[in-house]
Amino acid sequence: MAEYIKMFVSFFKIGMFTFGGGLAMFPMFRKELVEKHKYITEDELIDYYSIGQCTPGIIAVNVATFTGYKVRKTIGAIVATMALVLPSLIIIMAIAGILSEITDNEIIENAFNGIRIGVTVLLLNEVISLAKKNIKNKFQIIILILAGIMIFGLHVSSVLAVFIAGLIGGAKFIRQKK
């Protein structure tokens, strides 16, 4: 039991004090999980990150689940994941509650008009850096064009678009094998 509590506190702290999500959380994960509690080694942490990037879901959650499982199997995985998520639940709902109370305030309105543009620009910047990192060969350029037609032209839903791409990737593998 003490082990679970220790683990809960550790992941709660990570969820509470790291900003930026994903990669930005790496140093905190290392400090808490590798250096302080020695739940995992640094190599394992890097490994979890790389698997996390190619499995569904939030990367930080995947890291928490992997670590929790390693320390205390399925229950450990659940405890670690819930502890990581809990601070977000509390903080976000508090802020959302306050924000929904403020209406008809010109300063807040102007601030959010600016922030909306800021968020859009940040997302564009993220798209550009993703493109640089992820588009590596002709096959991916073809998929990119296909995706453009599906998403911008045919308004296919996000779920269906990802599903179709996965099938194409699988089919390509099977054909190459033959």
Binding site: F139, Q140, A147
Partner: peptide, 23 residues
């Protein structure tokens, strides 16, 4: 790896689509 190679460009295009919507 092949499946992931195919999914990444789609994710990119989805993000671009959302970005255009936000614009």
């Amino acid at each position: 790896c092949e499946v992931m190679m195919a999914i990444r460009p789609v994710v990119l295009m989805l993000m671009l689509y959302a970005c255009v919507g936000l614009f």
